Computed example of a mutant assay.
Amino acid sequence: MSAERFPDLSRLERHIVEWLRRTVNDAKACGCVLGLSGGIDSAVVSVLCQRAFGEDMLTVIMPCHSTPDDEADAARMVELFRFPSIRVDLSAIYDTVSNSLSQYLGTHSPELALANIKPRLRMITLYSLAQSRNYLVCGTGNKVELTVGYFTKYGDAGVDLLPIGDLLKGDVRRLARYLGIPAQIIDKPPSAGLWSGQTDEGEMGVTYEELDSFILSGKGSEKVRAFVNEANARSEHKRKVPPVCDTTGL
């Protein structure tokens, strides 16, 4: 169903590239920095940023007890497209923070609280690198993730711009093939890499194909409908700036 949204992929590519240039220029910045995870979303955004900014972009590989295959796929993208790139290993920093916090965590999802340290450390890393270069931090979230809140607040959502934030997962896959991204990266199960064996679809309990279809058409099984509506409502705070207590009239 998503294939019908953008019949001209070259036009979609040009549109995003021009939007990236315009947005960065409006911010008086010089380029973009982004994390390269080895997954399809960051692969697509990296190619688009390179086409927008040439050498004025930086991809950052940030292993944090990550699977070797993910890092290998990220390195493959760097080699294939010749991205400006650096590697920052966050494993030791994660160990220090998680070991310091573990004894103080409550009983509500302590494992997830520790896992979410990883994307938040990556956010800190990217902003430090961006500020030192007058770059913006480019996010890799897609429309499905934004809709259901499948991202870490002040982690992978801590970014300045989202070039594929209006693309469904199927759109991203089609664009990836058009851009020449290796099939191995396109076809592997999407994962946030929070723990060993974790996959997006396994954690959510529904497939991206089902989510694409429901978000686009409003049609789907009761399971998918309930998941999207509940997840969207539960994650609404992630998509808004923090509320401010209004003291007018006191």
Rank of each mutant, 00 (worst) to 15 (best):
Tyr127Gln: 03
Val172Arg: 01
Val24Ala: 15
Thr59Trp: 01
Leu146Gly: 14
Ser46Gln: 05
Leu34Asp: 11
Ala231Glu: 01
Ala157Trp: 04
Met123Asp: 00
Leu146Lys: 13
Val17Arg: 03
Asp187Met: 10
Tyr135Glu: 09
Val241Ala: 15
Lys153Trp: 01
Glu201Val: 09
Leu216Arg: 15
Met123Gly: 06
Leu114Gly: 08
Pro84Gly: 04
Pro243Ile: 06
Val137Phe: 01
Val206Phe: 00
Gly197Val: 01
Lys223His: 14
Leu9His: 03
Asn99Tyr: 07
Asp8Ala: 12
Ala75Gln: 13
Phe151Glu: 09
Tyr208His: 12
Glu4Phe: 10
Cys64Val: 08
Arg5Gln: 14
Leu20Lys: 09
Arg87Asn: 01
Thr247Val: 15
Val33Phe: 01
Gly139His: 06
Cys30Val: 11
Asp200Leu: 05
Ala226Tyr: 10
Arg177Cys: 05
Gly155Arg: 02
Leu80Ala: 11
Tyr104Ser: 13
Ile86Cys: 12
Gly38Asp: 03
Asn116Leu: 04
Thr107Phe: 10
Cys245Gly: 09
Gly165Glu: 00
Met77Lys: 06
Ala115Tyr: 05
Met57Pro: 14
Thr96Phe: 07
Met123Thr: 06
Thr147His: 11
Met77Asn: 02
Val159Phe: 04
Gly106His: 02
Ile61Met: 07
Thr152Ala: 03
Phe81Asp: 09
Glu111Ala: 12
Val148Tyr: 03
His65Trp: 08
Ile185Phe: 02
Glu210Ser: 12
Glu230Asn: 12
Lys219Gly: 12
Gly180Thr: 04
Ala52Cys: 04
Ile185His: 06
Ile61Val: 08
Asp171Phe: 07
Arg239Met: 07
Cys245Ser: 14
His65Glu: 10
Val137Glu: 02
Glu210Met: 10
Gln103Glu: 14
Pro242Asn: 06
Val137Ser: 01
Ile181Ala: 08
Arg234Val: 12
Met62Lys: 06
Lys238Tyr: 02
Val33Trp: 02
Lys188Cys: 12
Leu121Gly: 04
Leu48Asn: 11
Ser42Asn: 08
Arg82Met: 09
Gly139Cys: 00
Leu80Phe: 06
Pro243Asp: 02
His237Leu: 03
Pro84Tyr: 05
Met62Cys: 08
Ile40Met: 14
Leu161Glu: 05
